[in-house]
């Protein structure tokens, strides 16, 4: 039977290295995934994920269990990942909130949902798109990658996103919208579902 997180955390707090290792093994892939989504470089994501566990170990005694262990470790990982790309952000033009680069009226809405059909969860195209998503995500500006990962992988609410990123709720919604539009456009392009106005056929 699998030992629950709180028991492992308590054992790790008491100095049980085996318990801490069990926590690492349990969450390593998800933590790496969170980091990868934000930093996009696999080696940097690996380093960020290891550093996240290092921080957890250092501050384990301070963890009171107000949130779940998984929430705590994902939060640390995403913080570290955002810090890691901060320097990159400063040197990139994509830090600008590009509110006007998506044509609201002519961006091929519905193409993906039509192609994916009535049962997208079981759809072959969906699996193919998931395979393409990593590349699509990597094409996005870092501010869009991070908000998509925080929303869809960490599951943060608008309020939590606003607090985490230090922006207003309206900016959260706007940034998420643009991130989704760009991601959908990239996916549609990969899938050969050209968006209207982009020169291809729907």
């Amino acid at each position: 039977m699998e030992v629950e997180d709180p028991s492992l955390v308590e054992a790790a707090k008491a100095g049980d290295a085996g318990a801490f290792k069990a926590l690492v093994v349990r969450y390593q892939r998800k933590v790496y995934a969170v980091a990868l989504g934000i930093v996009k470089d696999p080696d940097l994501a690996w380093d960020v994920a290891q550093e996240a566990f290092l921080r957890v170990h250092r501050h384990l005694a301070e963890f009171k269990g107000d949130s779940t262990f998984s929430t705590w470790i994902y939060r640390i990982a995403s913080h570290l990942a955002i810090d890691a790309v901060r320097k990159e952000r400063r040197s990139q033009k994509d830090d600008v909130e590009d509110l006007h680069d998506v044509d609201l009226g002519d961006a091929g809405e519905g193409i993906l949902s039509s192609a994916l059909g009535q049962d997208p969860a079981e759809n072959l195209l969906r699996r193919e798109l998931a395979g393409r998503m990593e590349a699509a995500l990597a094409e996005l500006p870092v501010i869009h990658r991070e908000i998509l990962v925080l929303r869809e992988v960490e599951g943060l609410s608008y309020e939590e996103l606003a607090a985490r990123l230090g922006i207003q709720k309206g900016t959260v919604m706007s940034r998420l919208f643009h991130a989704r539009k760009k991601m959908q456009a990239a996916l549609a392009d990969y899938a050969g579902l050209r968006v209207e106005g982009s020169g291809g056929e729907a």
Partner: peptide, 15 residues
């Protein structure tokens, strides 16, 4: 709605 969960799915596949 159709693409909900794809980001998490893709990153977990990469991991």
């Amino acid at each position: 709605l159709a693409t909900e969960g794809l980001v998490a799915q893709a990153l977990e596949r990469a991991a």
